[in-house]
Design a protein around this nucleic acid. Structure first.
Length: 908
RNA sequence: GGGAGUUUAGCUCAGCUGGUUCAGAGCAUCUGCCUUACAAGCAGAGGGUCACUGGUUCGAACCCAGUAACUCCCACCA
């Protein structure tokens, strides 16, 4: 028995979530039913729930609950990602706070700390998801570094290596000096940054060009001349422009365009690097843009991707002056030990003092930042492991292009295609400890073998070296670990153990999964790689649909972030508005693929909706069946039944197209407008004072409760807690232990009496008009009024009296043949209505209103007639369009006649 | 620099194959109501040159071209 005036979510949420858990409603095991599977995008194990997760997981839960209620075997696999670089960074920071330096730890010691950290903070986010109502099969919870998951990753690596899809090589990579690891191209965010362009003078050697091959670091110093005596006449120096003056010590050449007439005199010359006075050649390449900067380019092969290529081409030496942490090393000769940014400032001063700085200019350019640490990326030459992408990308692209994998919304197909067609090899090694260690083993002679275990590696090593004396002690495993996405790319397969046991019952049953719900930001990071691994390992797509959500932004359109402090705490929000309220709030503003401007008021709307349902329930609870009463509400019952089925069809269609907001809105209107505002008002018993309960006939009561129960079902995926709470009320009779809303089956779409629905639409207009008249004439809603109808249509208003009377507070509906003079009148459909009032009618105002109406109708008729009189329209338009125009014309004529009659009767 | 998308009421968005489901919804606003389920509510109302300019068509929010603004993705110009 419910008495509370408003719904209080907290209790219901705790009660029902644990009830569902206890009764294993989230559990899924393979059976004869059709599976419906979602794998969660595993959040960072040390992550905390933010609004993006809220949106993403609300959507998944709605989908999974709906599938469950459609009789599918719904399986939502939860879990977390070890997020190698992000987590390692956090652990390093934590250790630092405790005064421990990572450098002083062994790998084993560090990993021990990392696991401790993971045990302590990992999985908080999963607990938070429970508050949201997420109906994951928690027994399946996976972590990407679980033993079996890691084993799958190793298996996959070995497999790809065997196929020649993984190789090792020295390449220019994106180096994150903060976490001291390489990161992939996708993990670099480019941002526009205000910088300075430094114009630096290099003195031209008067001797002929030195051979680049002979050039050694620190060699060929021309100490003969002192800086102070240098002559900086234009003929004796050239000027280059750079944003990175601290790298001049790594310069290997100056490059000019061979066609640049300004610099013909430099051909074959060499120049001296300022400050360190090392001599470098001037080389010619048309790569250099003549009209940028000075037209002279410093070539620094160790610290720039293009310069590296240029260096290769011209056989230049590579002088790496940076340490792994971004400080300058001894090869720089000066400013050794300084951080690159500190060095930049200092060298500018030094250059200035040496008279080698011509000028500086403000300049903006794109700088790469590490996705995880936000450190400025340093291009760095290093030995890394790579995964060949081209062969893998081709089939992965086809899945999307041929529609086997649907992207929702479709606009992402283009982006996906572009990326897949231009993908470069993927750097999969990370110089970290937290992650799967690459299963490559180095032999004493520098060669390596790749194998699952060190034992297998040993066997291979013996084979390779023809040396049976080798022992495992001779092997040294690769230090690097694999990129996180290399493991999460296996997620839909590895959670079902499909990598290690490709033919097990689970993978065969659940894979391919159905829907994936994720952010467009990780379309390449993750989605593309899952499609690749799915194809590689199983020759199958990993999922059929990818629903791409937008980014949650604040009202001002700013991305929600911790730094800005503009992100509400989801847990607090749920405390304030209830989990159901927040779920509804999220969905109300979330069109697929478009960013959503989140505002708390949406949650308020969600909470109000919950309260509305709660109160509708309270109303019904106040009723008691009186067997002596007969059913006078048959029309209302039939009407709502039809409306319900209409809405059901609409909702079904919306879901098919993944228009979740629309499905929710259709549900919202069904409940609030059709059920509460109209149906309940139609059948509501007249209040009898003193009675504890209001009497109602048995049929209406049964129908009303049945409708309510069906509404609970439709609402459940959106508002699981409230619906479950109400579901178990005694109003619905005895419920078995397992008779729960969460596993109730959605009603099938029944028949729709469309004639009834459209006639009731007219009746609703009549009621609205009556209320309108009341409002306009300042009449009390309590005052009953008589209504007269002059019927021009086929509607039987006598039949609808039981609806019109209570809703309009009408005491009598009478049929008339003539316009009722002196009465307030209005038109609904094509029928005329009159309300005789005891008050004086303002004839002049009434005339004016009618004349306006007349004018409008005449204009309307004119345009319709013009259309119908147009030969080309009659020739080209489809028949049903023409029929429609004819009907419009007839209706307008009928209305016009009514207006004319009224005008005449008022003698305007 | 290349590509994609968006632009409809104060806000967030629908508008499907061009035609009365074509100018819509929810929220917000305004007016009147503490009417026995609900003031987290009820009843009603007012809000739009469908970004702009042309074109196609009997007919355009919708198709085409151009313009503008915003957003996102990709890209090595120092």
């Amino acid at each position: 028995m419910i008495i509370a005036k408003t719904y209080s979510p907290k209790e219901a949420e705790e009660k029902w979530y644990s009830y569902w858990l206890q009764h294993n409603f989230f559990r899924s095991v393979p059976d004869e039913r059709e599976p419906y599977t979602i794998v969660i995008p595993p959040p960072n194990v040390t992550g905390v729930l933010h609004m993006g997760h809220m949106l993403n997981n609300t959507i998944q839960d709605v989908l999974i609950r709906r599938a469950r209620m459609k009789g599918k075997n719904a399986c939502w696999v939860p879990g977390t990602d070890h997020a190698s670089i992000a987590t390692e960074a956090k652990v390093v920071a934590m250790l630092k706070e405790r005064g421990i330096n990572k450098k002083d730890l062994t790998r084993e010691e560090f990993l021990k700390y990392a696991w401790e950290w993971k045990e302590k903070y990992g999985g908080i986010i999963l607990e938070q998801l429970k508050k949201l109502g997420a109906s994951c099969d928690w027994e399946r919870t996976k972590f990407t570094m679980d033993d079996d998951m890691s084993e799958a990753v190793i298996d996959y690596f070995v497999r790809l290596h065997k196929q020649g899809l993984i190789y090792r090589g020295v390449r220019m990579v994106n180096w994150d000096p903060q976490s001291k690891t390489a990161v992939s191209d996708e993990e670099v965010n480019r941002k526009e940054v205000n910088q300075k362009l430094y114009y630096i003078k290099y003195r031209i050697s008067q001797k002929s060009k030195v051979k680049s091959q002979k050039l050694e670091i620190g060699g060929t110093h021309d100490r003969g001349e002192q800086l102070s005596t240098l002559n900086f006449e234009p003929s004796t120096y050239l000027t280059i422009a750079t944003t990175r003056p601290e790298t001049i010590m790594a310069d290997a050449a100056i490059c000019v365009n061979p066609n640049d007439e300004r610099y013909l005199h430099l051909h074959g010359k060499s120049v001296f690097i300022p400050l360190i006075n090392r001599e470098i050649p001037v080389i010619l390449d048309d790569y250099v843009t003549m009209d940028f900067g000075t037209g002279c380019l410093k070539v620094t092969p160790a610290h720039d991707l293009n310069d590296y290529a240029l260096g290769q081409k011209h056989n230049l030496p590579i002088i790496d002056i940076l340490n792994d942490d971004g400080t300058l090393n001894e090869k720089a000769q000066i400013l050794v030990g300084e951080d690159r940014f500190a060095a930049r400032k200092k060298i500018a001063v030094l250059l200035e003092e040496a008279g080698a700085l011509a000028k500086t200019e403000d300049y903006t350019s794109q700088i790469g930042f590490s996705e995880r640490t936000n450190a400025v990326i340093e291009p760095k030459l290093s030995m890394q492991w790579f995964c060949k992408m081209q062969e893998m990308a081709k089939p992965a692209l086809d899945y999307v292009l041929n529609g086997e994998v649907k992207l929702i919304p479709e606009k992402f197909i283009n982006t996906y295609r572009h990326w897949m067609e231009n993908v470069r090899d993927w750097n999969i090694s990370r110089q970290l400890w937290w992650g799967q260690q690459i299963p490559a083993y180095y032999l004493p002679n520098g060669e390596y073998v790749v194998a699952k275990t060190i034992e297998e590696a040993l066997d291979e090593a013996k084979l390779k070296t023809q040396n049976p004396q080798l022992t495992t002690a001779d092997l040294r495993q690769e230090d690097d670990v694999l990129d996180t996405w290399f493991s999460s790319g296996l997620w839909p397969i590895s959670v079902f153990d499909g990598v290690r046991n490709p033919d097990n019952a689970e993978i065969n049953y659940y894979y391919p999964t159905n829907d994936l719900v994720t952010a467009p930001e990780i379309l390449f990071f993750w989605v593309a790689r899952m499609i690749m691994s799915g194809h590689e390992l199983r020759g199958q797509k990993p999922f059929s649909n990818v629903y791409l959500t937008g980014i949650v932004r604040d009202k001002q359109g700013r991305k929600m972030s911790k730094q800005l402090g503009n992100s509400p705490d989801p847990i607090e929000l749920m405390g304030k508005y209830g989990a159901d309220g927040v779920r509804v709030g999220m969905l109300l503003c979330s069109p697929a693929g478009n960013d959503l401007m989140f505002d708390e008021s949406y949650c308020e709307q969600g909470r109000n909706f919950a309260n509305k349902i709660w109160n509708a329930f309270k109303l019904i609870q106040g009723w008691a069946v009186d067997e002596s009463l007969t059913n006078t509400n048959q029309i209302a019952i039939e009407w709502f039944d039809s409306r319900f089925n209409q809405a059901l069809a609409q909702i079904e269609d919306d879901f098919k197209q993944y228009r979740l907001s629309e499905a929710l809105m259709a549900t919202y209107k069904l409940v609030w407008d059709d059920y509460c505002a109209w149906y309940l008002e139609m059948v509501k018993p007249v209040y009898k004072p003193g009675a504890e309960k209001q009497s109602i006939d048995a049929e209406t009561y049964a129908a009303t409760i049945n409708f309510f129960q069906n509404i609970l079902k439709v609402l459940h995926p959106f508002m699981p807690f409230l619906t479950e709470e109400l579901w178990h009320d005694e109003l619905f009779g005895e419920r078995g232990e397992l008779d729960c809303c969460i596993v109730a089956q959605l009603p099938a779409i029944g028949e729709i009496n469309s004639r009834l629905v459209s006639e009731i639409e007219i009746i609703q207009q009549v009621v609205t008009q009556v209320r309108n008249v009341r409002n306009a004439k300042q009449l009390s809603p309590k005052e009953t009024l008589p209504l007269a109808v002059k019927v021009n249509s086929a509607i039987d208003y006598v039949k609808y009296q039981p609806i019109i009377k209570p809703l309009g507070n009408i005491n009598d509906v009478s049929l008339v043949n003539e316009a009722l003079g002196g009465a307030v009148n209005f038109i609904a459909g094509t029928d005329e209505f009159y309300i005789a009032l005891n008050i004086e009618i303002d004839v002049a105002a009434e005339c004016e209103r009618l004349k306006k109406e007349q004018e409008y109708l005449l204009g309307f008729l004119k345009s319709v007639s013009a259309k119908l009189g147009n030969e080309r329209f009659m020739a080209n338009a489809k028949p049903d369009i023409i029929d429609n125009e004819l009907k419009k014309k007839a209706d307008a004529e009928s209305k016009l006649k009514t207006v004319d009659d009224n005008l005449r009767s008022l003698a305007c």
